[in-house]
Design a binder for these strands. Structure first.
Lengths: 248, 248
DNA sequence: GGTCATCCTTGACCCAGATCAAGCGCGCGA
DNA sequence: TCGCGCGCTTGATCTGGGTCAAGGATGACC
């Protein structure tokens, strides 16, 4: 059962990803209630490691606010980010015990979690939850494969443009802007984290961002606040063949 | 209903992946019969494109024999392989209409297919099929993310060693060798296909294979037949921290 | 056996991005 | 207010792998 405190948070969370994105689109009332029973919220501070690679994971859940990263590290310290968790993204591997990745909060975060064992039991009893999870996993698989193209074949400049357009798109779908080509967002990652995502060094990231700024593809206010005056120009720089409709 | 011809093939296919790997581990007899009704076999020749990127896909299925690749191509022709389909691998995106990738047979192939619509209907009616598909999709996601580390952070030599060890491992699990460190297999890919998988050029692939041969990490007979005298040495070259137990 | 195409190897050279190094700017705690 | 640390930028130089180019091997087909 929920304590008063948790209820309050749940109520604040009007567009809680569990409602609109993860598992509940077709839930019946009693299923929703069962979900509520195994649901709880966790807060993390910027820089805090949520799960260490190899750790046992006793929950699944969604990002409510803030950003986390999924990274792999080799013994000699080379690291590669393999996923970026933005609000409404699902975290967890139903049916698996551990995480093969480090999960790290890069900003302050709130996560909406379910205890794993009861969640899995619900999954068995409620087939459409499994279907929804399959959907989401296929989405993640597509994203991972898209990123393989970025890592394997794109130039440094194209990589940066690809990352910026992904973040811009996600940001835009959250804070719906008037449907125009200009958009504004804050970079949620350090240069080093961007480098780890893109398979570059932080110096190259910095240089290419400066170059995009010099060429008018982006405008910078401080180090993190980005304005994209022409989004289709950015997509072009990313080498994307998509038409770039913002609202996917 | 099955015609006589198909039945024969089905019978030959004693370890048909649909039986032992994809969906049927817990199927009841009548479910198996329903699967049989929507099941058919397709043959492809080496070089044949199975699905074009963007095509409608009206089936799902498994590789029975032979090898296929999943590739993405940019407008300017740069291509990145995002998946390698070996025998027993599943192909298809239940719930999705099209494929975002080209699927190409690199050797002669046999696939065991199910018509997509009835398969999806069965999935709804038979929850453990959806669970099995979720399992498999999570496996693919892990593989894709593992490959992101290869593409983003490994050197050319490490990339080649990683690819060889993956193929060797898969080959070994199919044709179980005595549990020793020496193993033998045939490369199922051209140098160019390897390059597309690894984000390299075919010249670099060729040079690095020559180097591994010169250094005694592998032995070559012709261009495709590979002997690995010491598998743990190969894993070492790949920069893998896994212990390399062959039988995963 | 000869021709041709495909796949592969090897060499010479070049360049994008890594590496090494110096310094800037801003926020924070004393 | 100062100093200190962290995140970032920029410059100089180096190098792994790309590019361009020239053959070598193998096998299919005439």
């Amino acid at each position: 059962m929920l304590n008063e405190d948790t209820k309050t948070v749940a109520h604040d969370c009007g567009d809680c990803p569990i409602r609109h994105r993860a598992v509940c689109a077709r839930c019946e009332t009693d299923e929703l209630e069962r979900l509520e029973e195994i649901k709880y919220y966790r807060n993390f501070e910027a820089g805090q490691t949520i799960i260490w690679s190899g750790d046992r994971m006793d929950f699944v859940g969604s990002v409510v606010s803030g950003i986390a990263t999924l990274t792999q590290t080799m013994e000699d310290g080379r690291t590669q980010m393999v996923g970026l968790l933005l609000p409404s993204d699902f975290v967890g591997r139903p049916g698996r015990d551990g995480s093969p990745y480090d999960v790290v909060a890069t900003t302050d975060m709130v996560m909406c979690c379910f205890r794993k064992r009861p969640f899995e039991e619900m999954m068995v009893a409620t087939p459409h939850i499994a279907h929804r999870l399959l959907e989401m996993t296929l989405d993640e698989l597509d994203a991972a494969r898209e990123w393989m193209l970025v890592l394997g074949r794109k130039t440094a400049r194209e990589k940066i443009a690809s990352l910026l357009s992904i973040i811009a798109r996600r940001d835009a779908t959250l804070n719906l802007q008037p449907a125009q080509n200009r958009l504004v967002f804050d970079l949620p990652l350090t240069r080093e984290a961007m480098a780890d995502y893109l398979g570059l060094t932080l110096e190259t990231v910095s240089r290419q961002i400066s170059a995009l700024k010099r060429d008018g593809v982006i405008e910078l206010e401080g180090k993190r606040h980005v304005t994209v005056p022409d989004f289709s120009r950015l997509l072009d720089e990313a080498g994307d063949d998509t038409d770039g409709g913002l609202l996917v």
